[in-house]
């Protein structure tokens, strides 16, 4: 039983690659652009292009491909459910029926819709994972803070928002480790998490959350007091030890992103959408 093993979201894998060295703002904006492109894509061809791009990024960043993919394992049941859901629910007037059983009818339109939506979720997850694997939490915050700073003018507490996000992300791993301990404590008292049907399994999960939430609240409370004791009073009078610089690697990356975006937009405009 090792629950934290397959968590890749929010984990930072230190390295010295081209992608690691980029200014966090470059990486955040690039990820943002890819997310927007993903939301517009409706063909397998365009997904193929994004896949090649992301795969290249994973290789350049020196992330072992097997590890990059292992993050999807815990999501498999949800993804499968989503796919099946779309398969049976989505249809269009000219769709061809693949098979039907009782009240369920699967059409080719449903099949493509399910596949494309599932791909979209996988890619969205993938790009976020790539961002956090190659960017430390600290520089991620610095980048976000800098990017959001214009919003301060309209009264948005950007620094506070960013600090909240950092802490939330940091807690993903701590809570996962804690969940591991709680699950083990329950297994040690005779709970068989791997036995029973879906409802029985779900029922067993509930007692896990009570101690998890209590512990999360306790930690949060202690962290707040510790931050307050170190004179944290929000972003107002804070200064920073480090400032960000856009360098040559960033210019190169921006160029690559422009070319890539043009390619995807070209594909979106020229290839007939599958749906």
């Amino acid at each position: 039983m090792e629950l934290t093993k397959n968590i890749t979201l929010g984990v930072y894998l230190p390295g010295k690659s081209f992608i690691h060295r980029l200014d966090p703002r470059t990486k955040i904006i690039a990820s943002g652009i890819i997310v927007i492109l993903l939301l517009m894509i409706r063909s397998y061809q365009a997904y193929g292009a994004v896949f090649i791009f992301l795969a290249a990024a994973v290789i350049i960043a020196g992330i072992p491909p097997g590890y990059a993919f292992s993050g999807f394992k815990p999501m498999l049941p949800v993804l499968t459910f989503m796919w099946i859901f779309q398969l049976f629910l989505y249809s269009s007037p000219d769709a061809e029926v693949i098979f039907s059983w009782w009240i369920f009818t699967a059409t080719d339109a449903g099949f493509h819709m399910g596949t494309l939506i599932t791909l979209r979720v996988i890619f969205l997850f993938g790009i976020t994972t790539l961002l956090t694997l190659t960017t430390s939490m600290v520089s991620l915050t610095d980048g976000l803070e800098s990017l959001l700073s214009p919003l301060k003018a309209i009264g948005l507490p950007t620094q506070e928002l960013v600090m909240t996000m950092v802490i939330a992300l940091r807690f993903v791993l701590i809570l996962a480790e804690e969940l591991d301990k709680i699950v083990k404590a329950q297994m040690a008292r005779g709970v068989a998490f791997d036995r029973g049907n879906f409802i029985q399994k779900t029922k067993k999960i509930f007692p896990v959350f009570l101690p998890l939430f209590i512990s999360a609240f306790k930690r949060a409370e202690e962290l707040i007091i510790a931050m307050e004791a170190r004179s944290y009073t929000g972003g107002k009078h804070r200064t920073k030890m480090k400032t960000l610089h856009i360098g040559r690697v960033d210019l190169a990356a921006i160029l690559i992103m422009l070319i890539f975006s043009a390619l995807i937009i070209f594909l979106i405009l020229t290839v007939n959408p599958t749906i």
Binding site: K181, K184, Q186, A188, V208, P211
Partner: peptide
């Protein structure tokens, strides 16, 4: 083979 963990907060569920 009973196991009592370090931190009781993780193993008290009720």
């Amino acid at each position: 083979v009973g196991y009592v963990f370090q931190n009781p907060d993780y193993q008290l569920f009720a």
